[in-house]
């Protein structure tokens, strides 16, 4: 068996540390708390909250697609980062997938944690008429199916 060579030199590890520091500096300072969820529900008629993690590659792809689906439907999309994601990984995943800087807001809303929304990434949660849907959609869902799901839940919520 041969050993792994990742970061096998001090220089490589130093570079990784510096990169991590640099990306950390880019992270938005304000996580998404319950009070932000309250504001979202008050200020927007409907939308989809999409939780993603750079540790789950399909969720990175899904985040970009969810944003496009919401845009096409004319509803609000809120991309929230896994509360425990590695900052460096999150930054580079967001950049390479051209996610907006606000996609790096960490999910810290207890209301969403309580329903189990942080148990898997991605997870999509629809909201409308001032309330968050009791159902959630964990796991990657292709755009067409995600669109159909959102429309179905919006009907239910309104």
């Amino acid at each position: 068996m041969r050993g792994h060579t990742t970061f096998s030199t001090g220089l490589g590890a130093l570079l990784a540390c510096l990169l991590q520091g640099a990306v950390t500096a880019d992270l938005p300072p304000t996580p998404f708390h319950d009070r932000d969820l309250g504001s979202l529900l008050r200020e927007h008629a409907s939308g989809v909250i999409y939780l993603w993690s750079p540790h789950m590659p399909y969720s990175v792809q899904g985040a970009r697609e969810a944003r496009e689906v919401a845009q096409a439907l004319g509803i609000r999309s809120v991309l929230l980062l896994d509360p425990y994601a590695e900052p460096a990984l999150a930054g580079s995943a967001a950049r390479s997938s051209r996610l907006p800087a606000r996609a790096l807001r960490r999910m810290r809303a207890g209301a969403l944690s309580r329903m189990g929304a942080t148990q898997h990434f991605p997870t999509a949660v629809v909201f409308a008429a001032g309330r968050v849907d009791a159902l959630m959609l964990p796991g990657y869902t292709p755009p067409g199916d995600l669109r159909a799901y959102i429309l179905q839940r919006l009907v239910n919520l309104r």
């Binding site: 590890a13 130093l14 990784a16 540390c17």
Partner: peptide, 23 residues
């Protein structure tokens, strides 16, 4: 200053040392 902090942190915490995966 952030750069300096990271350099110190890396040096102190051993993050820049070669990663030997056999722990």
């Amino acid at each position: 200053r952030r750069l300096l902090c990271w350099l110190i942190a890396c040096a102190c915490l051993g993050g820049c040392a070669p990663r030997v995966p056999y722990t």
